[in-house]
Nucleic acid binder design. Sequence first.
DNA 1: TTTTAAATCTAACAACTGTTATAATTTAAT
DNA 2: ATTAAATTATAACAGTTGTTAGATTTAAAA
Lengths: 203, 203
Amino acid sequence: MAATSRKKDEKLRDLTRRMIMDRTARLLVKNGYGETSLRDIAAACDMKAGSLYYHFDSKDSLVEAVMTHGVTQVEADVISALDATPADDPLSRIRTAMEAHLSTLHDRSDYGSAHIRCFAHVPADIRRRLRDVRGRYEAIWTRLLEEARTSGDIASDLDLHTLKFALIGMMNWTLEWRLPTGAGPREIADQFFRIALDGARRG
Amino acid sequence: MAATSRKKDEKLRDLTRRMIMDRTARLLVKNGYGETSLRDIAAACDMKAGSLYYHFDSKDSLVEAVMTHGVTQVEADVISALDATPADDPLSRIRTAMEAHLSTLHDRSDYGSAHIRCFAHVPADIRRRLRDVRGRYEAIWTRLLEEARTSGDIASDLDLHTLKFALIGMMNWTLEWRLPTGAGPREIADQFFRIALDGARRG
DNA sequence: TTTTAAATCTAACAACTGTTATAATTTAAT
DNA sequence: ATTAAATTATAACAGTTGTTAGATTTAAAA
């Protein structure tokens, strides 16, 4: 069947595309945007630089694809984690989202890390478009915090914008950690939730 | 006097050196390590690339000087802020350090930002040495937190290592903000202190 | 003013960059 | 087995990179 074969081809095509993006993400995390050449990427894919142009229009479009996926992947994981327990109270939902965010960032792939690490130094036009994708993801957090505020679980005089960035900041900064052995996303989410919601004060 | 003249020369020399580092720091923040060429730096200094070698041995030694200064500057400011009110209680000292850290990062120069933004992508040997400098600065925070714990101001079952990175993470992530108008380092430090120490919960 | 030293420029180097057109090869369809 | 399509490799392009040696300029010292 022609239809089946063509479908198979497209899947192989997408598979190669995804493989290239995987290796690119890893290199972007490790070395950064300007320090990663197309020949580096090609070598990591057992290819030659010119061959990459069969799958991507340019280095920048490849990098943009990787970094966009970095956000949408975290977003999808957070949403699906929230959907798994839809009846939870607002604060529990925040904790769930934190664990999903951390878990995807550390255990799932290099896409999210690549986004976070390279965002500031990527060409301006890419950055502009990524800002929109970022914004859509952050809207999830805004909504989570607003719901917690509406239900009276969060102090009414606290700036939610600041709180949102505090949460995202401490989570994303874990990429700079030497992760302590035995402490996975789950344990870190526990501690962070406790710090940000209950505070470190007292005993 | 020969001695005086030579001293003046050395000061001019250091002034130029510092000027080069200033411009480099700005470019590193904006464009990153691999995206910033010596010709870019030279142009920003109204010089030609080759002339930079009179002041620095290489691009990497220039970058390392900038990034090292990024830490020592924040460290110096935090220490001097702490020394200004030595009798404060442990928690107040933490708040003081937070405001100093944020203030230096945002209002004083680009050195700290350059360090934070480029650390992950700088050549491995530079990164190794920077880790030591970083470690010495972070030791200040470890000490602040331990003192607060000893005095009974911080929950005894909370991992201080995690708390330290949570604080540093949320502060450093402010570099990614569009800073809300009217909110300076002082206001952000207030909110962060309240979030991390008292928690966002309740009303 | 002459001499000496400090600071910058010039021009080139080999290596590397993203990108392209074209050829070679692999894979699937007939 | 032949043909057609999909995928990768080749080889070159113009431009950029960090770096260097040597000439040139600027400023200070005698």
